[in-house]
Design a protein around this nucleic acid. Structure first.
Lengths: 162, 162
DNA sequence: CAAGATATGTCAATATGGCTGACATAATTT
DNA sequence: AAATTATGTCAGCCATATTGACATATCTTG
């Protein structure tokens, strides 16, 4: 049908929910002179220790130059450290320092508080539905290293990246 | 307690889900030389016809100066029109033109396609859980006009699209 | 009516975080 | 030795956000 119902309400709810969700972290980041970009880098380096710069570029879908500025600040200020790869010494594997861990945990704490409030009164089955929904919202045709970890085995038809 | 579990998985799923969700529209907007900011303005003007400039500023949480540039483009190119308020002729009430309606519907169509795919296999009760979750994620301490419509009277306020 | 407040628009300068293109270096692969 | 790869960096551009200042029209109030 040409007039298939558009899901205006969910589109709108997603906008507001995400706005306030990231707002929690944004506010705290200001104190440190950081922005949302720093948070994203720190989050993924914390979650996937030893992530390569190239992996990070895939996940964040930004250019090397854009990442460079943000990453340099996090390195200079001691939130992240680099180590040369064992097999390939060109690689700079990234790790969060204790200082970095502390910040990212603080930010995750704020967001977890909001999530816990929102999940109050929702049964475990309901939470599973929400997870299923969110996972199904994500493109799986060209999964990066992080998405492969999230989804386990690469999805059908997806090219397997080494 | 200090060791309360942080919801890393949901935090991450929200990041990817939202990234790909807005990505659909972003890609299409490029064709028109517009950005995400134009989409947001057009969306809310479409959904709440006669929205004042001040309302829009509350909803988008940006400054008048930032809105000005985007709004001017949408006006100049005929996606939105202004009308002076009946009671207060200082007000510029905003309305989407047919051209604007067409664009915003196209964008909503892309996002609805993704939502429908993600909701496939989820029961009506599950969809209600997702709505409940998203609504509970939103700050309600200082509701703007749009949020009042969303939370105030269920299924009223927003234009019910034919 | 005059004064002040309000709704909007606009100018100028600045910051952040994206982008492209070009080039450098070190290390691995061929 | 040459080519490719992983990373870093310089320079400049663009979009979207910011603050501050000021202009205009209109409404409200003393």
């Amino acid at each position: 049908m040409a007039s298939a119902a558009l899901r205006w309400d969910i589109i709108e709810l997603l906008f507001f929910a995400y706005r306030d969700f990231v707002g929690d972290a944004d506010h705290e980041l200001e104190v440190f002179g950081f922005g949302r970009a720093h948070h994203r880098v720190l989050h993924f380096v914390h979650r996937y220790p030893g992530l390569k710069v190239a992996d990070l570029l895939d996940v964040l879908r930004i250019t090397k130059q854009s990442l460079g500025r943000v990453l340099k600040q996090l390195l200079d200020e001691g939130y992240i450290v680099q180590k040369a790869g064992n097999n390939d010494r060109r690689q700079r594997l990234l790790f969060a320092t204790p200082k970095g861990e502390a910040l990212v945990a603080k930010l995750a704490g704020l967001q977890t508080d909001r999530l816990n409030r929102a999940l109050r009164g929702i049964e475990p089955a309901g939470l599973e539905t929400i997870r299923q929904f969110l996972r199904a919202m994500i493109d799986r045709d060209d999964p990066d290293k992080v998405l492969e970890a999230i989804f386990g085995a690469p999805s059908s038809g997806a090219k397997t990246k080494e």
